[in-house]
Design a protein around this nucleic acid. Structure first.
Lengths: 234, 234, 234, 234
DNA sequence: GAATAAACGAGACGGTACGTCTCGTCTTATG
DNA sequence: CATAAGACGAGACGTACCGTCTCGTTTATTC
């Protein structure tokens, strides 16, 4: 992610075995310090500047520039270290159940204040193609892949309608959550994730007259959603 | 919209009849020039600065600051003048039809390149409560109100299920579109708006065994949507 | 002084008799208001701006520009109205006496805090030839003329050495006072004026051996000047 | 002079020996460039602005602000570098001779057009106590000290009258010169300096009847000074 | 009494400089 | 060779005055 030839993350790479490279070795604690400082600043809703990251982390500005191309990249990396380790999906169960589990795993981080970060990162990533690419690779791809798998599986199982476009579904799931992040409408409670799933499963249409006595089905979920009006929407 | 006490826009207010105000009258061509320059810059994806707006529009910097508190406010106003005059909804027809009409009226602007603007505006509005308020008042409110009306009407008409939360629905409609704007995934074609509506109306579930002939309804919707995979999603 | 075609000050000019000019007559209270406000600001050591004069005096900016070419001109005029009415010289008496009287009359204003004003005015007048000319006409000329008269008279009377250049003398009298004004070393006490005169009259040289017993003469003045060291000089 | 904690000018301080300070060293050519540009602008009688200094010298504005608190400080430093290296006094000789030498050394710079600079610097220093302090320390103090020494020496030698206040004398010597600078009455020719000394030594009074042959002394002084009237005085 | 004309206030505007901030680069000394 | 310290140019920020201009209003003279 950092534009670093030598890779760092886990990085028990070959190189580290063969040759302790010449010169002073990179101080890995710097990466941690920078990312931590960045998260703190983002949480404080302070406007992020390399300047600030530098002075808070104690890492000099030129050093930061050596390892990251711009502040957006730093922010994204900082966010990812926080978020991705939660993405653990336990497949199994009905569509309903499994979709909920997916939402919780994929967007559960939105329960926390930090999550606003992502919206600002994405927004500024528009100007930095490389950062955008990181975002796709590390955030989008894994989630979209899992969703695609889920859709395929449940379609085969006959639980989902035929012909559902996983990409479209992805946008209908992630879109509302992202909207709240972008609008500062955080934290996003778990119930919201569930409501989205519920509405999507059932659809908006009134049950056809075919089975007037059968609002049953998976209808339960549609239990009168308290008309939340606390906030204005987004 | 501009932080202007004395009204400018349409403003055939009483005051304008009774008293042509004292002092040199405001040169209204400036407002236009500023907004036009702003749109141009935003379209060019150039990073927006008051400096740039000033030199491009030929309006001096102090004058811009006289009428707008910050660049985000300028950008929002510029966007609104472009967008809001399209919001004409002709109610009538079935849910399906009416929801589509709503989408086209409310988000049709997303067909154009300009639309990315909005995402950047919203993103930076997070730091400017007053601009955020303008955004709510001029973009969100009218659209949400119309949607709420639509929902109420169609619920009474028995076309929509009982208990649908208009706010949640709003987020499911606007969320996906906004997501594409924010990701630079523009223009958003009209078909996308329709697909969202279709999916939401019908829901994801496979038709219950109760009535094999049932899913007719507005029929078309379930038509195998070609699994668009051109783009990666957002 | 003001760049006013029609003159105002005393101005019982022919024109004022023959024709009260057409149109609304100038409101003379404005001049007073402007000058008073200017003096106040100068006394407060605030940095003088037309803006400030305008808002303090309640006279609009364009009106001030109608009557004065720049702020330096306003300041000079304000100062002169304060200062010149003191210049009343009563000739007569010995050189010593008369020179002292001259100093008191010409530079007595330096006893007051306001006097610093003059230094700043002169300094900025360097860039405004017209203001400099006013300064010469209204401040310098009358004082220099009187001094020249004094020198001529006392030279004829045999009290002053032959061949004293009045211009040089003027600079030796006004220079030290001006220096204190310019350095903010105000107020300039009357004793200072006297000391200057004394030193100049007697000169620095020790009395020639010709009359070892006669430090008398006009020596009295040289009475042990208490070695003031309170301030640093200028 | 610059508000620089770390010493630059001569400063062969201990620190400079032991430790060449960390970080990129200050580019001393910038200081020179700034001061040179400043002198040029002052000579051209252009109104001095940091903006102008910056663009003329090629040094960026922030850098200038890093090293000087305001433009007055820059101007003073620029002037001092030009002026102070001339202050070399060779004591010895009679009062007359020595006083003249003092004048030439201390105020000789006034022969050049540049000298007007000083007046404008002092004028604006009134608003900047720190600059005023620099002025005292670097211009006033050394000159006043030498004058005080001169007075003491010559008083002991019996050439000067007892009880002459060096501060008062300072004002009588520097005042007339400063007056000419402030009035734009430059260059100040060497003869002017001499005339001031002459007048001060001898005094104004006609020689007492005691010793008709007396006023010999340094004789010259009383030589009929051509009544210069070319300029108006100041 | 109506027309005329100047004086004036209110306010908009382009312009210039201010002093500050952050960016990203570069240069040196140190580890 | 990695790093810290720090100097630097570039450029935008938001503000303060400048001096000018355009109006509408007021107050006097003149026809």
């Amino acid at each position: 992610m950092a534009h670093d030839p030598g890779s760092i993350p886990g990085s028990a790479t070959a190189s580290s075995v063969t040759a302790a490279r010449r010169g002073r070795p990179r101080d890995t604690s710097l990466r941690t310090a920078v990312l931590r400082a960045t998260l703190e600043l983002l949480r404080e809703r302070a406007s992020l500047s390399i300047e600030a990251i530098s002075s808070r982390s104690g890492v000099s500005r030129p050093t930061i520039y050596r390892w990251w191309p711009n502040k957006t990249a730093v922010a994204l990396e900082a966010f990812m270290t926080e978020v991705n380790h939660r993405l653990v999906l336990a497949p199994g169960g009905g569509v309903d159940e499994e979709l909920r589990a997916f939402m919780h795993g994929a967007f559960g981080f939105a329960q926390e204040q930090d999550s606003v970060i992502l919206a600002s990162v994405i927004a500024s990533a528009t100007e930095h193609p490389d950062v955008m690419e990181s975002y796709r690779a590390e955030f989008l791809r894994p989630r979209q892949d899992r969703l695609a798998g889920l859709v395929a599986r449940q379609t085969r199982a006959g639980e989902l309608r035929q012909g559902i476009d996983p990409t479209l579904l992805w946008q209908l799931l992630w879109g509302p959550v992202y909207l709240r992040l972008a609008s500062g409408d955080v934290p996003v409670p778990t119930e919201f994730l569930d409501q989205v799933v519920t509405l999507l499963l059932t659809g908006l249409l009134a049950p056809p007259r075919c089975a007037p006595a059968a609002p049953a089905g998976p209808a339960g979920p549609a239990a009168p959603p308290e008309p939340r009006a606390e906030r204005e929407g987004s």
